[in-house]
Every structure is written in C-alpha cells, then in structure tokens.
Design a protein around this nucleic acid. Structure first.
Length: 556
RNA sequence: GAGCUCGUAGCUCAGUAGGUAGAGCAACGCCCUUUUAAGGCGUGGGUCCUGGGUUCGAGCCCCAGCGAGCUCACCA
C-alpha cells in the first residue's frame, strides 16, 4: 500500500490526528451526513445571488465534500469543498464554530471529507462562501494529495490510480461524464426508434462475428473451454431470426491483440440490426445518430480533434473507388477513371504508369535541385520541403509497385483496391465520411450488390482519421453462409488463427429464415474520443489495461 | 513485435562540463479572524526505476532489464 517511508509516516500521523478528532466527540468513520444541498445545487441556486439577497433572510445550507484546498489564518480559516466536480468555499471562524469546532478545523487535511452547516455569504472578493456554524468530520485522507496546482500529471499514475486522477483533474472527470452522456444518448436514439436493447453471451464456445484472436477461459463445473467474445454479431442476428426485428447491444468485446492509442484489449461496441433495411437505410441512420449524440453530449455538432474542427452533422458519402481517386497523388495530374478499377488489366496499367510517372517527377526534381542532393547542405526550409516531397513520392512509389506485385501474385482485384484505400485514403478522412461498396473479397459476412457481384452492400464510416463503424446488408442465405464458414475453416487450417470458426448453430438459425437485415457496429470508445477530443483510447477508458508494476513497500 | 523518447522527494519539475542532490506544492512547528496557486519564520524528507560496467569519482557516459508515452505493424 505504501510507496515510501514518507507515506508510511504520514499515514501514522494521520492516524494520530484521527484519534484527536475522535476525542473531540466526532465519529472516525460516520455512516451518514444529512446534506440539504449538493455543491452543484448550491452553485446553481445561489451562484449569482447578491450579498443583499443572501443577507435578508440568511440562506442556511448543509453541504458535504472533499477538502481540496485549506487556508488557515490564526483564529479563522477557509477551505474549498469539492463535490460532483464542483467547488464551494467555506469559512470557519473560532467565534462561530466554538473551541471544539475550531479544534476540529485545525486537524483537517487536504483530501478529508467533511460536512458543514451554515449560511451563505459573499467574501470581500465576491466569492460565494458558506459561513460555517457546525463542522462535521466524515472521513480522513490518510495519503498525500498530488500537487494542488498541476494535479496528477504523470500519465501512468493517472491510469493506474484513476481514483486520484478523477478528483484532482476535473478534465478527466468531464471525459467520463461525457462518456455516460454518450451511452445515454445512444440508448435514447435507438429506444425511440423501436429497437430493443439486449445482452448476448460474452462467454462463447465459438468466437465469431469478426476476424480477431480471442481470449480463452474455462468453466470448471461444466469442464468447458470458452472464448471471450470478439463480437456479438452472430447472436444478435439469431435474435432477428427469433422475431426481434430491431435489436441493439452496447457492451464489451475482447480481442487478444496489441494495444495502441486506438486499441484496448477490452473495448465497448454498439451493434444494432434492423430487419427489412439495407445499408442505404443505415447510412442515413448513422448520420442522424452521430449528429444526435454529439448534440446531446456537447450541445453542438462541432468537435475539436487533434487541433481540427470537425462538424459531425456534415457528411460525405463516397464509394471506395471514388475515395481512392480523390486522394490520388496530385502530382499525377491525370486521375484514373472509375472504370479502370473494374478489371485486372486496366488497374495494372494505371498502377504501372503511376509509379513510373512519379519516378520521372522525382528525377526531374533532383536535377532541378542538385544542391539538396548533397548531405552537407544546410537544412533550409526549401531543402526540408524537398526531402518531404521525395519521401512522400517514395511512399507512393512503393505503394503502387507493391500493389502491382500483389495484383500479379494472387489476382485479387478487391484486396488490392482495399490496400490502396487503406494506404492512400483512411488517415485522411478527418471530416465525417461514409465509404461504401466494398470489394467482396474483403467482406465475408456481407451480401453482394444485386447488380454487381464484385462488390458488397457494405460501408464503413470515418472521422478524425480512424474508422468509427462498419455496416452491411447481412448475408442471410444459409447455404452460402455454410460455404463461407467452410472456406474460413480451410484458411484456419493454413494457420490463419483469425479466420472464423464453423458455427453450425448459426447456420441452422439462418435456415429458419433471417429476413433481409442490415447491421452495424460502432466503436464507442472511439466515438467518445472524438466527442471529448481525447487522442488516446486510454483517456476514455476508466481503467485501461496496464502491465504489472513491481510491488510497493508492504503494508505495516 | 520494432523504432524513438522518458523514469530525480508523496506531487510538479530543475540539476551546468562527470565533482558527492535542489526549488515550489504537500508534510511538521510557530505567527496570522475575508483568504483563494493566501502570506511570514523555521524543520524534516531521496535505493536519483533496477542490476552491471567505465572512472579517482556517475543522477549525468556505456550495457542489460523493468515500467511508461509516442510512432509503426495487426485490428475496431
């Protein structure tokens, strides 16, 4: 429990103080304090009240809170109480609280919880303050609080000891208040549209519905190996078969993969399914949903992320190929046509001419600026620009030539188009954008477009440079589904441990008839990041997963 | 998993050229009845992340490890 001798001796000191407090007739750990108002209620009701208003007649309040600042001044003193993220000053003076009361005040420390009863007034500097008449001790802080001006700044400590972060850094608290508002708004949106909230198994015998490595666990009594779910998808569609036409679930998924600023091993996902709808219906729904949630949480659809202003009510819809063409390197003045992505030979030709042209441009650039080619030149702005230009070109050249090699190797047009999209487009999708019509090869659970078997009815939407959600018209042909599971099984046999397992029961469910259904999943942590301007997923998860740290000085 | 950066008092941070560790807050004692990052006087507090190495001498240089942040890879 203790990090040091400093903490151990402080703890002993505080114990002695607690004994003194008990001698004054206070309970060491009382069970109750009958407050008349919370701190936010007092601020809301009298925050603007004038001195005159507060004097005739006096306003009596009882409030409780944690001491976040304490300033003793001889026979009087101030303290600041914090409750629900708001603060209220109190003023304690010997002649108002008596000898016992003032003795208690002098035994208080930063972080203690107290309750006070008294009347409201304004100090000389105009601050709303409780003039205390009765002081009640409620609980003691036995450890030292972080520095009062900077708070807890060490990112690691903030995650590991979130309880300290939350009461010292009110910004951190605000993020989680907004997270709760986000969840509430999501539920309101779906409830109002006739969706039923459900909870499906998190422990599954077949971890399906996504491509990811699962965590494993074991049930002892049943002697059953189980997986923590990687997605609720297959259970939610069973429910649509069961006649719940509109269902949604908001809960944790678990994926046994790396961590990053955008990935935590357990993360919260919203999934919803709507019978008789297709992916176009969900595009509209998604645009309405995100704008609605933003408005509920922030009061506006504008949010700031990474220094960029994002308007969550202004959406762009592009097919995947349109998006690639839009982001085609500007130096290649001629942009490829949509048609050139529809067959192997034209895409091959486009890629070839693109990287050859980029190499020509690079050669010309080098000839025009020979002085920058020497390692000894000064780092002028022009030279920096030259180096950046060259690096960007080289990335594009590598991208196009790799894509071409891949095209030659496995002849999969779809996979190459998807790779181009990921490299060229994804991180540039800062403003809300829906990308639709995915290649069939990269979308094993989606339904093909009726008039175009090379593409599926699927979209993903992006904001702030990352993917927020994924939606498609669901495959509901049991024969086709069984075939695709069998293919995945073959890939699994080849060593791909992210390939789907066979789920016979799910195929059986489809065999009873899944109506035409569209479904969507939205990463809630990422949505909260966007709404709160948080750059790391760990800033929106209360207790993110951390490595073990060496044990601290043992208790007593 | 790879690369880069960081780890000094409970907290926030300095630490010069390698010369034997500092400030503010917090703590402790005293003074102070409208302060608000209160103020004044005084006191205590450090395995400088860990373990090796180089050196007469290491917080600083080198190696290994632990933990963290960022970037990349995989993914939502």
């Amino acid at each position: 429990m203790f990090d040091s001798e400093f903490e151990r001796s402080l703890f002993d000191l505080r114990k002695a103080k607690l004994e003194e407090i008990v001698k004054l007739g206070q309970a060491a750990y009382p069970n109750h304090f009958p407050a008349s108002h919370t701190v936010p209620e007092v601020r809301a009701q009298w925050g603007e009240a004038t001195t005159e208003f507060l004097e005739a007649p006096r306003v009596m309040v009882s409030v409780a809170g944690r001491i976040m600042a304490i300033r003793a001044q001889g026979k009087a003193g101030f303290a600041t109480l914090q409750q629900d993220g708001q603060r209220l000053q109190i003023y304690v003076r010997l002649d108002a609280v008596g000898e016992q009361g003032f003795a208690l005040y002098k035994l208080l420390d930063m972080g203690d919880h107290i309750g006070v009863t008294g009347y409201l007034f304004r100090t000389r500097t105009g601050e709303l303050t409780v003039h205390v008449e009765t002081l009640t001790f409620l609980a003691k802080a036995m450890l030292a609080l972080p520095e009062k001006f900077h708070g807890l700044a060490d990112v690691e400590l903030r995650y590991r000891q979130r309880y300290v972060d939350l009461f010292t850094n009110l910004d951190a608290r605000e993020v989680f208040v907004k997270r709760a508002k986000t969840l509430k708004a999501l539920r309101q949106f779906f409830d109002e549209r006739g969706f039923l909230e459900v909870e499906t198994p998190m422990m599954q015998q077949v971890a399906g519905g996504a491509a990811a490595r699962p965590f494993t666990t074991h049930h002892n009594a049943l002697d059953l190996d189980l997986f923590l779910r990687i997605a609720p998808e297959l259970y939610l569609k069973r429910l649509v078969v069961g006649g719940f036409d509109r269902v949604y679930e908001i809960n944790r998924n678990f994926r046994n993969e790396g961590v990053s600023t955008q990935h935590n091993p357990e993360f919260t996902m919203l999934e919803f399914y709507q019978a008789y709808a297709n992916y176009h219906d969900l595009m509209t729904l998604t645009e309405e949903l995100i704008a609605f949630v933003a408005k509920e949480v922030n009061g506006t659809t504008i949010t700031n992320f990474n220094g960029v202003e994002i308007d969550l009510s202004k959406w762009t819809r592009l097919t995947m190929v349109e998006a690639i063409i839009k982001q085609w390197p500007e130096e290649l003045e001629a942009k490829p046509s949509t048609e050139s992505f529809s067959d192997w030979h034209s895409l091959d030709a486009v890629l070839q001419s693109a990287w050859e042209r980029l190499e020509q441009i690079q050669e010309a650039d080098e000839k025009a600026n020979p002085e920058y080619m020497s390692a000894e030149t000064e780092s002028t702005d022009d030279e920096v620009q030259f180096v950046i230009r060259r690096a960007l070109r080289q990335i594009s050249i590598a991208l196009f030539s790799n894509a071409r090699a891949r095209l030659a190797l496995d002849k999969s047009l779809g996979k190459v188009i998807y790779a181009l999209f990921e490299e060229l487009v994804e991180s540039n999708l800062i403003q809300p954008t829906i990308i639709y019509d995915y290649p069939t090869e990269v979308s094993p659970l989606s339904k093909a477009k009726p008039d175009d078997p090379a593409h599926v009815e699927r979209f993903e939407f992006f904001c702030g440079g990352f993917e927020l959600g994924n939606a498609f018209s669901e495959l509901n042909d049991p024969v086709e589904q069984h075939k695709r599971f069998a293919q995945q099984l073959a890939e699994r046999a080849q060593g791909d441990d992210e390939a789907h397992q066979m789920d016979e029961d799910y195929v059986r469910a489809l065999a009873y008839g899944l109506p035409p259904t569209a479904g969507e999943g939205i990463g809630i942590d990422r949505l909260v990041m966007l709404l709160t301007g948080s750059k790391s997923i760990r800033d929106v998860i209360l207790f993110p997963l951390m490595r073990n740290q060496p044990s601290v000085v043992s208790s007593q």
